[in-house]
């Protein structure tokens, strides 16, 4: 009887599902599997969970190394002095020519930690540094108009962010920290700002991440306009999904879409010099025609800060 057989098979399937399996200590097994698989081709033999764990361990090791070796934002150094070493012996002579050209155009450079946050970190560092300079120029007087302007924009950003379905519980603390940092600009020296932006696990990581929310909110608020730039390989454009995958996660690298969105949200323009092997760096300004204070250097995969004087 067909029905009887089905029942019998289901009974067997359920019995098999209940059978004890030896994988009592998954972590220990994964650890053993990882240890056993020291050669790359063995990766294929790992299960998804094992690969995840391996990836996470490698990522953590890389992050630890980056943390102990690279300042979040370094001191100002000459452009050629900072970069030449990295491209010594590079078969592509275009890099050396490009560096020479940048060296003639820019007085110095600050290295930014290579942890996936470099655009947001470099942007925020340079802009706030500029605000501190502007304010210092006015002495203890009234806030500089640019400081007033950006404070207004950041204060108003919370309502905008909440309007595109972020939870207040989740973003409140980050928003408050940026508001506070801006409120404190009149009593912040450049050295204090530099120290603040280099404090591990401190305010910096919070306000740098908050830039991601500002960028994502702008993308969501202008979904129609940004949709063509966030299409996936199938041609589907889901801005919320794009923000979830490409903007919000900590340490996720930044593309031009995020840059445009952040500069729009804060109304702070940025100029980026693109250095590749072609010889002449090309400069892009967002938005076009603006005269930004924030100049960044982009090399494939990374942003640093450039200073004209």
């Amino acid at each position: 009887m067909a029905a009887g057989n089905d029942d019998e098979e289901l009974r067997k399937a359920i019995a098999a599902s209940l059978a004890e399996q030896p994988a009592a200590d998954e972590n220990a097994d994964i650890q053993r599997a990882i240890e056993a698989s020291t050669t790359p081709q063995d990766l294929n033999a790992l299960t998804a969970a094992e690969q995840d764990k391996l990836t996470i361990e490698q990522m953590n090791a890389i992050n630890d190394e980056i943390q102990s070796n690279q300042a979040m934002v370094g001191d100002r150094v000459g452009v050629a002095a900072a970069l030449a070493g990295e491209y010594d012996g590079n078969a592509n002579a275009g890099f050396a020519r490009g560096i020479a050209e940048l060296d003639g155009k820019y007085a110095s450079l600050r290295r930014v930690r290579k942890d996936g946050n470099c655009f947001y970190r470099g942007f925020l560092y340079r802009y706030l540094e500029h605000l501190c300079e502007l304010q210092a120029g006015r002495g203890a007087g009234a806030p500089h108009p640019e400081l007033e302007r950006v404070r207004g924009v950041v204060r108003a950003s919370k309502a905008k962010i909440l309007s595109v379905d972020y939870e207040e519980t989740a973003i409140d603390m980050f928003w408050e920290m940026l508001v506070e940092v801006l409120d404190d600009v009149p009593k912040t020296t450049l050295d204090q700002w530099h120290a603040k932006m280099n404090e591990e696990h401190g305010v910096a990581m919070h306000i740098v991440w908050f830039c991601r929310v500002l960028s994502a909110a702008q993308i969501k608020l202008n979904a129609d306009r940004f949709a063509p730039f966030v299409m996936d390989e199938t041609g589907a454009a889901d801005v919320a999904e794009f923000c979830r995958r490409e903007v919000e996660p900590v340490n996720h690298e930044c593309e031009q879409v995020q840059i445009i969105a952040l500069t729009e949200m804060l109304e702070i323009p940025v100029a980026i010099e693109y250095l590749d092997g072609s010889g002449t760096p090309s400069k892009l300004v967002f938005p076009e025609g603006a005269s930004p204070v924030v100049n960044l250097l982009y090399r494939p995969g990374h942003y640093d800060i450039l200073y004209e004087e």
Partner: peptide, 25 residues
């Protein structure tokens, strides 16, 4: 979800996590 250990395979609990998410979400 592991039928043995209860371990979960979900991207937001790994590399797709972000502080924009909460315990509730």
């Amino acid at each position: 979800i592991s039928s043995q250990t209860g371990a979960i395979c979900l991207d937001i609990l790994k590399d797709q996590w972000s502080p924009a998410l909460t315990i509730k979400t």
